[in-house]
Design a protein around this nucleic acid. Sequence first.
DNA 1: GACCTGCTGCGGGTTG
Length: 712
Amino acid sequence: MSSFDLLSPNMQKKIWEMRWEEFTPIQDKAIPAIIETDDDIIISSGTASGKTEAAFLPILTLIEDTAKQSLKVLYVSPLKALINNQFERIESLCKDIGIPIHKWHGDVLQSKKKKFIQNPAGILQITPESIESLFINRTSMIPHIFNKLDFIVIDEIHSFLDVERGIQLRSLLARIEKVINKRPRYIGLSATIDNFEFVKQWVNFRNTDRVRIIHEKGYDKELLYHLMHFQRIEANKKPIELYEDIRELTREAKAIIFCNSREEVEYSTVLLNRLAQKEGEGETYYPHHSSIDKKERKFVEKTIAESTSPKSVIATSSLELGIDIGSIDIVIQVDSTYTVSSLRQRLGRSGRKQGSSSMLQLYSTMEDSLVQSLAVMELVLEKWVEPSQGYKQPFDILFHQIISMCQQYNGIKRSQLIQEIKSNDAFHDLDIEDINELLNYMIEREILEQLPVVQELIIGIVGERILRSREFYSVFMTREQYDVFSGTKQIGTIDKSPFINIKDRIILAGKLWEIYDIDSKRNKIYVSKASQGDPPKYSGDGGKIHQRIGEKMMEIICSDNFFEYIDEKAADCLKEIRIPYHSYEVTPQQRVIWRKKDELVFETYTGTTIYQTLMWMLRTKGVDVKTVDGVGRIKITMPPEEDILKVFDDIKNSTWCAEDVMKGVLERETFVSKFSFYLPERLRDKMHIANEIDIENTLSYLKSYTFRLIEL
DNA sequence: GACCTGCTGCGGGTTG
């Protein structure tokens, strides 16, 4: 039977109404998989391939008859915006057949939530944090809401796999299963991912054979791409020629211009609008990032989506996931992304019009960024993508979930709590001793309290304070912010810092402002219009780069490869970068330590986890490691009579245990997360070891390369 | 070298 024939008459009718002539390849595969098997299904493919319908056409076919009486589908999304977006898309499928669909997140009115609770039926769209709030604030309603649940659909499932938020979600879903004593089918929707074994484990570790991966690899569309280099003059100043070139490129086209920081977005918006104004144009470039007020961002999204004249949006990764901004002619990336998957997602945002090709313009403004841009682009072309690693030994989330569970049960025997933890998919591989240590520690600190007679655990005084905070629901870290107001209108936020003063001039939401009042108690700043300003400084924490990118960079530097998609300046710059490596005949199987008197610069060209582990090993061996930069250049101070290569040999030939590596880790370098501060030191170290240290691959890195000390 | 994500319930006042 064809996919179409498998669908219910009502769904077939929908397809006629939507005037679809054919299914996308992913839909063609997903429909029979969902209808004809009982397996969990992961649907993995690029943007705009119709994954939502691939899941919901067959799901609706299966639940059509029963969904009016009870809740059949729980749809989980990482973004409220995505819920609002998908609501309309799914609603149009549910219309006429009377299947209700409900939204539940922080912006949804209480009255609507109450209405849903009175008669839970059909489909519920929710965020992980709102599931958490159900467990805390509406505990007794959970069986009533979920007891007939058949499907759990997780949208953008890839965004949960490697982060604490994913562990929280995994735990919450396991807890729902426990309450209703039933396991609904899981349907995951994902951008292209790798490491399917891991995804299967995540979804159903008890029975990975019952998880089916439906995967579409390549791109349907032709990809046109080009790289140009505009060397920075000073560290922080990009040349005006770069902006002139972007202006040229976007004069007749609608573009998303991705920058790597909010600061760059603000600065570029002002500059590009100045260039446009010189040509007599009005506002043409709009900024988009998380510190711009939501209303303003919505306005920008709408302006871009609806505009018929060429208008462009300048954004951070805020526009990487599925927010709808209409069709885009060209994607511009200024300096390299940190991951291959990010570039892949971004270029998927262009050429959404039928038949048009995707256009990608890369720019680099520094030597490292040029090589990294090439490496990342080459890996995209090889169709490689970072595999999921998972979030290991999640004691911080266990801490959080123990509080949540104690609230849920309102008193639970310790043995029963441990049993619940061990049977939870999120925590099944944690050691029982560690769980016990954490429980004891929590009782000691009055986060939990052990009731004397009944021997039950309840939430303690300190735990109550943590639980009752608005901050409890989410498990990721955020910074303290000032809200910035012009009159009564909020413009956005800036990081709270003692260095912000009255009369400071800032750029925010693409406009210039002067601060005239700071209300530190209420975290509010008041501004008026100004004619000059600099973007505010936002602080962030660097992410990890995969080993494969480092290796690719070294391959590019050591080879003579000519890239036909790069301009002359980029080619000249690359040539310049290659000179020392070529003159010393360095090969990709080698790594170089450049020596200038007492100072050594070791260019690791590998991934973050490996070069950090190596740095800590070097410290443990008494080597004075000074700094390490984002691409893994380790600066070492060592007198000339000492031999660094001998230290490498020593490290290579030693037997390492994680505790030895930990001796080289500085306090400020240890693992940090929102709830890690509440953990006993040993468990925090254990998290650091599991997530940040990789002894095996570091030793094999040392064994597989030849290291050369070259005097400069 | 960074970016992104979400979130009470209740009482009191106002509005339709």
